[in-house]
Amino acid sequence: MTIVRRVARPLLAAPLIQSGVDVARHPGPHAEAAKPVLNQVSGPLRLPNDPVMVVRSAGAVTAVAGSLLALGRLPRLSALAIVATAPVVQPVEPFWKEKDPELRRQKQATFVKTLGLIGGALLATVDTEGKPSVAYRGRKARKAATLALHEAREDAAESVTAVKVSGRKAAKQARRSAKQAAKEAGKTSRRSRRKAEKIAAQQAARAQKAARKGRAALPV
């Protein structure tokens, strides 16, 4: 946390804490001022039909959130809670309807101060202290996921192509091996046939020679 934030957050939180404590301790007048707002939001938000209890609870939330903001604990969430309870804790008084000039100036000054506090709290809700915001991190994560998916698809396509190429190469190699085996088998068959013919010729020659010797040994 920088020095500016260490100083600015307590300064912003001080009037918020004071107003929250005051509303929690004395909710009656604030409940009367906040009735128009409560009448509009009680139904959609399902709030209890007890303006005093609602205003007191909102004041307590503002005081606690302001304390956390001053300490730098959960600053963005605390500021968001302050903004959410501002319509009840910091109700807008219609100063323009005031007839007394002095009271009108006082209410107008209070109105402007309230707007300033709410504006400061709004700025605190988007203060990421130099860190990437949730929206930025979400967009970055989405881009990274899209890129990873695209790369995965490309890798899958390359793998399929490689498998097809490997299959064609394997089939071609198998055909070559089969042709070579058939060729070698043919050569072996021809050699065996020639060898068998040679052996048969030798045996026939020996038989003819033995026959001639036998005829020569017979008496005339």
Rank of each mutant, 00 (worst) to 15 (best):
T2L: 08
R6K: 13
L11S: 00
A13G: 01
P15I: 06
G20P: 02
D22Y: 02
A24V: 00
A24N: 00
A31G: 03
A34R: 01
A34E: 03
K35Q: 09
Q40C: 00
L47M: 12
L47R: 11
V54E: 05
G59C: 04
A60M: 11
T62W: 11
T62Y: 12
A63K: 03
G66E: 14
G66K: 10
L68Y: 08
L68R: 15
L69Q: 07
L71R: 14
L74R: 13
L74T: 09
P75I: 06
I82N: 06
V83M: 05
T85C: 13
Q90A: 09
P91G: 09
K99C: 03
P101W: 07
L103P: 01
R105G: 00
A109V: 07
T110K: 04
T110N: 03
T114D: 00
I118V: 13
A124L: 08
D127Y: 03
T128G: 05
P132H: 02
V134S: 02
K143W: 14
A148P: 06
H150D: 15
A152Y: 12
A152W: 11
V160D: 12
V160N: 07
K164P: 09
V165N: 12
G167M: 14
A171W: 14
K183Q: 14
E184S: 09
S189V: 03
R190V: 14
A200Q: 11
A205T: 08
K213V: 04
R215Y: 08
